[in-house]
Design a protein around this nucleic acid. Structure first.
Length: 218
DNA sequence: ACCCAGGGTCATA
DNA sequence: TATGACCATGGG
């Protein structure tokens, strides 16, 4: 799939859904926390968990680390997998503080930052890339299940390829552009939520023209 | 009652 | 490399 096609898809998504203004958070640290909490979880449930952390004054790395595991798990209960995610949040906070937080990490080259994030227990490729793009502003294309599903339906050759293969393919085609990647990923999520559900309703959007799932249903 | 949601780890083949 | 079990809440 060439650059023109990818940009065309972007244009359709943008016209259909409008600018998304992502990531919905008030701070870089909130982006990082949200990236962990939203792992395989509806955003609605994450919002409640973040509100509880704010209420507890724990949306800050030191304050979060000061909580007991049980207390933290209770606060983020609504986001599901709360025991797992409590451990992951603490691991991320420790990593963040031990390296001097934003004042230091902001100077790290993207490759080193990505490798470091991936070394944190519970931070996989998508969570790392959410943080790189939306907290650090790095030109990294975030790939998620929605991205694969959409690109697969539209006939992208690497839609089912391993994570980094698809990511680097998209980045190579589009060129490094954090603003574009920011909006593109947000639009894909918006599209998945409002139009292109697992049972495709592609008739409602312009992408219907190239949608394999729609062709199959007819 | 079932499926899905802005994944990741670990054990196994 | 590629499956499958597991983690768990909340909405449709």
């Amino acid at each position: 799939m060439n650059a023109h096609r990818l940009q065309g898809i972007f244009g359709i998504l943008l016209r259909t859904h409008g600018p998304q203004h992502w990531w919905p958070a008030d701070s870089r640290f909130e982006v990082m926390v949200g990236a962990v909490l939203t792992q395989n979880t509806a955003w609605r449930n994450v919002e409640r968990a973040i509100a509880a952390l704010v209420q507890a004054g724990a949306l800050e790395p030191r304050a979060l680390l000061a909580l007991s595991d049980a207390r933290l798990a209770r606060l983020i209960r609504s986001s599901g997998y709360f025991n797992v995610k409590a451990t992951r949040l603490k691991a991320l906070c420790r990593w963040y503080l031990e390296r001097g937080g934003w004042p230091r990490l902001r100077h790290w080259p993207t490759g080193r930052l990505r490798a470091a994030l991936l070394s944190v227990h519970g931070i996989g490729p998508e969570t790392a890339d959410d943080i790189l793009l939306y907290a650090f502003g790095r030109p990294v294309f975030v790939v998620d299940a929605y991205t694969r599903r959409l690109l697969d339906r539209l006939g992208h050759a690497h839609a089912r390829a391993p994570y980094d293969q698809l990511r680097t393919s998209l980045e190579a085609t589009l060129g490094p552009d954090a603003k574009l990647y920011n909006e593109y990923h947000a639009l894909i999520v918006a599209h998945a939520k409002h139009v292109c559900r697992p049972r495709p309703l592609c008739d409602r959007c312009e992408l219907a023209k190239g949608c394999a799932a729609r062709k199959k249903e007819r």
